[in-house]
Design a protein around this nucleic acid. Structure first.
Length: 119
DNA sequence: ATATTGACTCCCA
DNA sequence: ATGGGAGCCAATA
């Protein structure tokens, strides 16, 4: 089965929307959940596309790198993401070089495809 | 159709 | 603990 771009976006959207409040997950895991473990990069790209104007807002902020680091992708962007996460009681520590890190061991949310199957 | 890029991840020095 | 390099797949130019 090959997923079209729209399908891919839809899947990403569905999974990301399921992330509980105050939890975070990684691009790679989202990719796995939709059955494409190697599309980790493209997950982020899909989010960027989705985050714009979908009816329920996509909590793209809850999706970070597997290492718990938030990609800088722009000086203001990461800052905004940190603020959004802290608003959800997610503890974000700032690295020495200004990297934003989230403790995945505490806030990480990594369900299996079965867990999200029903929704 | 080919080349470059990207909100990533893994492995080795 | 850090840092650099290779691998990946799809979108974009």
């Amino acid at each position: 089965m090959s997923l079209d771009a729209a399908e891919f976006h839809a899947e990403v959207y569905r999974v990301v929307r399921l992330i509980p409040h105050g939890r975070v997950t990684s691009y790679g895991h989202v990719a796995k959940l939709i059955g494409m473990p190697h599309h980790s990069r493209h997950v982020g790209q899909a989010l960027k596309c989705l985050g714009a104007d979908v009816d329920p807002p996509v909590p793209w902020q809850r999706v970070i790198a597997s290492s718990g680091t938030i990609s800088p992708r722009g000086e203001g962007g990461a800052q905004r993401q940190r603020d959004a996460l802290e608003a959800e009681d997610v503890e974000v520590r700032e690295g020495r070089t200004g990297d934003l890190l989230v403790n995945l061991d505490t806030y990480g949310w990594f369900p299996t495809r079965e867990d999200i199957a029903d929704e």
